[in-house]
Computed example of a mutant assay.
Amino acid sequence: MQKDDFFLVLDFGGSSVKGAVMSRDAQIHDRFSLPSKAASYEQWLDTLAPKFGELAERFALKGIAISTCGAVNVDSGVIEGASALPYIHDIDVRSLYQARFDLPVELENDGCCAALAEDWLGAGQDDDEFCLLVLGSGIGGAIVRDGEVIKVRICMPVSLATASFVLKMASLLLIQMLRQLARLSKTLRRRRTKKSKNLMVFKSFRSTSRVTVMWYLWLSIGIAILPPFSLMFSTLWIPNTFFSEGG
């Protein structure tokens, strides 16, 4: 194959970095995995360097593509926000790779990468618009429309999307709370049973009451806290990726 047919691809997760050598037609020619935990990005690159040297002897690598957790600024090469890997943030990641391995480097949020891959060769290739969720060490995702990830900086769409999410979560919590109240009602009726069973009924009542209080608490937190976060994040350049914190 020609030199421009091979790329080193890295997928950063909260516990490990999955790597591969891929060709332009998305064929995988080698796979590997390295731990993602490190004290600094330079230390992690020291971990990668021996594997890179091995692969560079076998493949004429054209560039490096990185799928990573965090809010990725694809223009500056800086990973903003927060994630399970503190060392990756607020530094010029692209320049670190280019200085170490002398190859072109591109990086994007892992949720966006997954969505674009599904649009290219996966379940979304026949759809003009779809949403994808990524469940890993964190929760991420993206919305793709006409082959591109939607990225916005206006208040209304992000606020409405997050408000919808809050309402759905509140509805689920309310359903669970009602189920617990039904169980509590059933337990109260059981208190009319024989005297010998009173102790068992009391223990069941106490346990059910705790669960009910817990659901009340979660419902209150969801309604009180999540909408302000919606307004705060809606003023930032972020992908539609649940704050782009996947992983």
Rank of each mutant, 00 (worst) to 15 (best):
M1D: 10
D4E: 11
D5C: 05
F6S: 07
F7I: 00
L8H: 02
L10R: 02
F12E: 01
G14W: 02
G14S: 03
A20K: 06
A20E: 02
M22N: 09
S23M: 12
Q27M: 11
Q27C: 13
R31W: 05
F32M: 02
L34E: 09
L34G: 01
P35V: 06
K37T: 13
A38Y: 02
S40A: 12
Y41H: 11
Y41V: 12
Y41P: 07
E42C: 12
E42F: 08
E42Q: 15
D46N: 06
T47F: 02
A49F: 12
P50T: 06
K51D: 01
K62W: 07
A65C: 07
T68C: 03
T68V: 11
A71T: 04
V72N: 06
V78P: 01
I79R: 01
E80F: 06
E80W: 04
G81L: 00
A82D: 09
L85V: 08
L85I: 01
Y87A: 00
H89T: 12
L96G: 00
Y97R: 03
R100T: 10
F101N: 00
P104E: 08
V105E: 10
E108D: 15
D110I: 08
C112Q: 13
A114D: 05
L121E: 06
G122Y: 04
Q125C: 04
Q125G: 02
D126E: 11
D127G: 00
E129M: 12
C131M: 06
L135F: 09
S137T: 14
A142H: 05
I143P: 01
V144R: 01
E148I: 01
E148G: 05
V149S: 03
I150P: 00
I150H: 03
V152A: 01
R153T: 10
C155D: 15
P157S: 05
V158T: 08
S159K: 05
M169P: 02
M169Q: 03
A170D: 10
L172D: 13
Q176W: 09
Q176A: 14
M177L: 15
A182D: 09
R183W: 06
R183D: 09
S185P: 06
L188T: 00
L188P: 07
R189A: 12
R190C: 04
R191P: 07
L199A: 13
V201F: 10
F205S: 06
T208D: 07
R210G: 12
T212W: 11
M214A: 15
M214R: 14
M214F: 13
L217H: 10
L219M: 12
L219C: 02
S220P: 04
I223K: 00
L226G: 06
P227H: 03
P227S: 13
F229H: 15
F229S: 11
L231Q: 12
L236P: 01
N240E: 10
F242A: 07
E245F: 00
G246P: 03
